[in-house]
């Protein structure tokens, strides 16, 4: 595919991007509890140049911890579309993979990959902070090699993703609520 071709400038920029990843964590699921130990003294995420960010405008990673109900999925899609490119998504825990223990719930979605492009999944319920750091290192490697192309896939297959979103949510109205 043409998505993997990068100019020399993009290659240099990808090196920088892999070393300074700012993360927006969407913590509605129980996986949020694994983040404090990864950030604080014991596992210390900041030594990789990673850190939490309070707003989607500055975030590189959208970190989805655990299950998403139909209501929160709408917010996740808004948030994802507000992030500046290039952007990466990590699905954390089995809930984002196949629904986990909520696989037959009427209110949650089962596969996050249908709605926004996920670059990396962390399987498990719960994954430990070690798994989290392993995943971050894997994501950095993917960014350096130009394999973390979820945001390009989203643009290329926008109709497909939009169709899936509409099927689950009824309507997805991306709007800028501050400029109306």
């Amino acid at each position: 595919m043409s998505t993997n071709e990068r100019s020399i400038w993009e290659k240099i920029a990808d090196q920088l991007r892999s070393k300074s990843l700012w993360m927006l964590h969407y913590c509605t699921g129980c996986g949020a509890i694994e983040l404090p130990p990864s950030m604080t003294s014991r596992f210390d995420m900041e030594r990789f140049g990673m850190g939490p960010m309070a707003t989607p405008r500055q975030a590189d990673i959208l970190f989805i911890t655990g299950y998403l109900s139909a209501k929160t999925l709408r917010r996740v899609i808004y948030t994802y579309e507000q992030m500046p490119e290039p952007k990466y998504v990590i699905g954390f825990g089995s809930c984002t993979l196949n629904g986990g223990i909520y696989y037959d719930s009427y209110a949650t979605i089962n596969r996050l990959d249908y709605y926004i492009p996920v670059d990396l999944y962390i399987a498990g319920c719960m994954p430990r902070p070690e798994a989290l750091l392993e995943a971050f290192n894997e994501l950095m490697r993917m960014i350096r090699k130009g394999e973390a192309n979820g945001w390009k896939r989203y643009k290329e297959n926008y109709e497909w993703y939009k169709q899936n979103q509409l099927r689950s949510l009824g309507e997805v109205f991306i709007h800028d609520e501050f400029h109306e």
Binding site: A13, L16, S20, D44, R47, G49
Partner: peptide, 15 residues
């Protein structure tokens, strides 16, 4: 903690 390298802010700005 161990902390980021001293040149982390250069990387952040250029990124």
């Amino acid at each position: 903690r161990y902390g980021p390298p001293w040149y982390q802010n250069f990387i952040d700005v250029f990124k």
